[in-house]
């Protein structure tokens, strides 16, 4: 691919999705965009690039952005964030929300495994949470994954990644070769198309924001903007959960890592969240 063509995609992706395309990822352009070119009846990628230089339709631009977005996800991905949600965040919220209402945002939720995992986790702990109202909002820039998320149907492969068999038995129904979430879990999550670069106030306030493995695709400046906007939709004692390879350190000081936890960020000014005790040194296993 010519450098000028590479730059066209780099600028387009940055502008439309915040995605930073580095030269070492240029191979992704060929593999992911050739099917898009075919769909738009272009004989090859170059022909499509030519159209994009002119006056491309917004649908073509959308297809390009969606094809370049990484949708890797699984149920209870990495497990630890979900354990911490149950053991650190929920206990704080049950003490500090007399309204018994909690709003959770899964930013960049892909095909829905993260918000549905949270919904199942809340159901599993229903006895401790009676009278509570939970609102889980899943958003993604890619409308096709949002449609899949709304459907709540997964392949055999997908339901075996991270999902304990007991939960599959409890919360899913078999539908030919697919596994469909039951209505009581599906109805706990609402999905919306949303671009993280656009103003977040329209989504309302959130007590907890999961934004995992998204910032890694952004450059420093975009990370800062997103984190600042996110912190603005949080109450004083709100939580942000980032992915294992992500941090706020060196990017912004509107959030800080919460001591003795991993991947949880809170406002530096907040004084009401109890910090969990430092984990005891793990016994060395033979």
């Amino acid at each position: 691919m010519r450098i000028s063509d590479f730059d066209l995609y780099k600028d387009l992706l940055k502008e439309k999705s915040g995605l930073t395309l580095t030269p070492d990822k240029s191979y992704l352009l060929d593999s992911r965009l050739t099917p898009v070119a075919r769909k738009w009846n272009c004989p090859n990628l170059e022909a499509m690039t030519h159209i994009l230089r002119g006056m491309p339709s917004s649908d073509l631009v959308k297809d390009v952005v969606e094809a370049m977005t990484t949708n890797e996800t699984s149920f209870f991905r990495d497990l630890k964030p979900f354990d911490q949600f149950r053991d650190v965040i929920l206990p704080h919220m049950t003490k500090s929300r007399p309204s018994k209402k909690l709003r959770i945002w899964c930013a960049a939720c892909s095909t829905g495994q993260e918000p549905y995992s949270l919904a199942m986790l809340l159901k599993e702990n229903a006895a401790k949470l009676s009278g509570w109202q939970f609102e889980i909002i899943g958003t993604d820039i890619d409308t096709s994954v949002i449609e899949q998320a709304k459907k709540g149907e997964y392949s055999q492969f997908e339901v075996q990644r991270g999902l304990p068999i007991q939960m599959l038995m409890k919360y899913f129904e078999q539908k030919a070769d697919r596994w469909a979430l039951k209505q009581d879990i599906k109805s706990m999550v609402q999905y919306k198309h949303f671009n993280l670069l656009t103003p977040m106030a329209m989504l309302g306030k959130f007590d907890v924001v999961f934004c995992r493995n998204v910032l890694i695709y952004f450059d420093r400046e975009t990370k800062e903007t997103v984190l600042k906007n996110m912190s603005a939709v949080l109450p004083e004692d709100g939580f942000v959960i980032l992915g294992g390879a992500e941090t706020v350190l060196g990017i912004t000081d509107v959030l800080k890592p919460m001591d003795n936890t991993r991947g949880i960020y809170i406002k530096p000014t907040c004084t009401t969240i109890a910090i969990p005790a430092a984990p005891k040194a793990a016994a060395v296993k033979a």
Binding site: D78, K80, Q160, R161, P164
Partner: peptide, 26 residues
């Protein structure tokens, strides 16, 4: 636990860690 074939190493590892046979990497 229960694995439906076909499986891969990721599925086996995820099932092993769910029932406490291995400490998950993360």
């Amino acid at each position: 636990e229960y694995i439906m074939k076909p499986f891969d190493s990721e599925i086996i590892e995820s099932k092993f860690s769910q029932i406490g046979l291995v400490t998950s990497k993360s």
